[in-house]
Amino acid sequence: MNKFKTLTGVAAPLPLINIDTDMLIPKQFLKTIKRTGLGVHLFSEMRYDEIGEEVKDFVLNKSSYRDAEILVAGDNFGCGSSREHAPWALLDFGIKIIISSSFADIFYNNCFKNGILPIIVDNDTRDDLLKDAENGSNARLTVNLEDQEITRPDGSKVPFEIDEYKKHCLIEGLDDIAVTLDNREKIDIFESNTFQKFPWL
């Protein structure tokens, strides 16, 4: 996984609440057995009409937002299914940061596993950042993960909270599985202890 430090990029506004995983990537695109190539299908049903033409006023179809790397969105982003195809599609499109006032748990976790940074801010900050994002290609935000800070286009800074361990994994680009397998012995011991106590497991 790539290491994550700071990023300056165009932020696209998506003020809808409850953006669910079916909106992010509808089920007909879950049939792939790969992780890549899903970017063209991101927000498919909002982005394209019945005959597959782009819907002009959908934000990511506007020229100023085509290269967006940051999304600023309404409450409860990513609710619905556990499909990791949602972060895969976002990443494949080029989105590396999502800012919202709240995220659904599974989606939030899935982001970190793919090097995407989901940032939780309070409602007022979200509304401020939505306004910033509405300024077209001037809507550039800088996110510094190390210092846990978002720099707005006017130069002012907003702090954000993030779990220490998750931050560490993103910054170092750690492979979770390799880290856990280093603890193999602990798992072995746990397994044999549990089997003695709960032999039916």
């Binding site: 899935n110 856990t180 798992i187």
Partner: peptide, 23 residues
């Protein structure tokens, strides 16, 4: 019992564990 993403599926397959914080 809870849902997990595909990266976590791989993690459980390989290690029979999950990295979790308590809810």
């Amino acid at each position: 019992a809870h849902g997990i993403g595909t990266s976590e599926v791989e993690h459980v397959l390989a290690t029979q564990t999950l990295i979790q914080k308590k809810s």
